[in-house]
Design a protein around this nucleic acid. Structure first.
Lengths: 154, 154
DNA sequence: TTCCATGCAAAGACTTTGCAACCCG
DNA sequence: CGGGTTGCAAAGTCTTTGCATGGAA
C-alpha cells in the first residue's frame, strides 16, 4: 500500500468544508508544501519559497496558513530539538503520524512510514490505561551515508 | 530493576570531571531538578523554584546551567509541541531516554521507563541501515483520569 | 455590502550574549 | 591569584497580534 500526499483539489475541499477560502496566498503556500513534502521546512523556509511565486505575500500570512492547515490536520507541526517548528504533510490514509530518523552528523531527516508502533500502542493502552490517539517518534543516530563516510575516513 | 535519579554527589563528580565548578547557583538548580524530577519543568519554572532558595540568581545562569547539564547528559531537553523547552532528568543506568504519555485533555505527562522500542530499533537498523543512538517517543492521547471523568460525565 | 483575509509593523515569548564584577578552587 | 562564573541588560530569534486596507461572494 502506497500512501500519497493529498492533492490541491482535496485540500481545497477541506478548506471549504471548514469555511475557509482558498486564496491565492494559501494556494501558493500549499503548492510549496506539496512540492517539498520530504523536506520538513520551517516557516521561514516556506515563506522564502512562497515568495518566489507570490512576491507580495507576508510572513504573517504564511504563519496563519500553516496554523490553519495544522488545525485541519493537513499538516503536522514537528520539533526536532533545534528550537524551531517544522511542518510535515500528513499522508493520506495514514492512521498515524509517520516516524523520523534524524542523523546527528549531517542533520538529514528520513521518513519512515511503516507502522512500527502497533504492538507498543496496544501495550501502552493495556498497561497504562492510556487511550492512544497519535504519537511522535524520532530516532536519533547516524544515517547510512554518514556511516559509509566514517568507514572510508578510517 | 529500579532506576533512580543520580545524587548530587554524583553530579558534582561529573561536573568536576568536565572542569566545571559546582557553584551555589548550580547546586540550587540541580536540587530543584532532583526534587521535581517528575515535572518536566520549563526554564522559567525552574528559575522560579530556584529563586526561592537563591533569590539573587539570574535567569541567564539557570539557562547556562541547564545547557551545561544537557551537554553532560545529566538532563534531557524535550519539546512537547507547546513551543518551549522542558527539562527531564536522565535516569541513572537507563540506556535510552524514557517515553512520555501526553494527555491531550488535561496536559498531564506520564513517564514510561519500560524499554518499549528494542524490537523496533533493531528493525530500523536492519531495514534502513540507520545506527540508532537514542530516541524520542511521545504518545498523544487521553490519560486514565480523563477517561474516567468522561465516562462519569456521560 | 459584508466578512474574511492580507500586509505591515509592533509586540510578545523564549533564549542567548556581552561585559564588568565576583568568587571558587 | 586566575580563570571560570555570575547578574544584569541588551540583543536575538521565532511567532503572534492589532489594525487599516483589500477582495470575493
Amino acid at each position: 500500500m502506497t500512501r500519497h500526499v493529498p492533492t490541491l483539489k482535496k485540500i481545497k475541499e477541506q478548506l471549504h468544508g471548514a469555511n475557509y477560502k482558498l486564496t491565492p496566498q494559501r494556494e501558493a503556500t500549499v503548492m510549496v508544501l506539496l512540492e517539498n513534502e520530504k523536506d520538513h521546512l520551517s516557516a521561514e523556509e516556506i515563506y522564502m519559497l512562497v515568495k518566489l511565486k507570490s512576491p507580495d505575500i507576508g510572513l504573517a500570512t504564511v504563519y496563519r496558513t500553516l496554523e490553519m492547515l495544522t488545525e485541519l490536520k493537513i499538516l503536522d507541526k514537528v520539533n526536532f530539538n533545534d528550537g524551531l517548528a517544522r511542518y510535515d504533510m500528513r499522508k493520506e490514509g495514514a492512521k498515524h503520524f509517520h516516524h523520523h530518523l534524524l542523523c546527528l552528523e549531517c542533520g538529514d531527516i528520513e521518513e519512515v512510514e511503516d507502522d512500527l508502533l502497533g504492538d507498543v500502542e496496544r501495550l501502552v493502552e493495556k498497561e497504562f490505561h492510556f487511550l492512544v490517539k497519535d504519537h511522535r517518534l524520532t530516532f536519533h543516530g547516524v544515517c547510512r551515508k554518514c556511516q559509509e563516510k566514517n568507514n572510508t575516513a578510517d
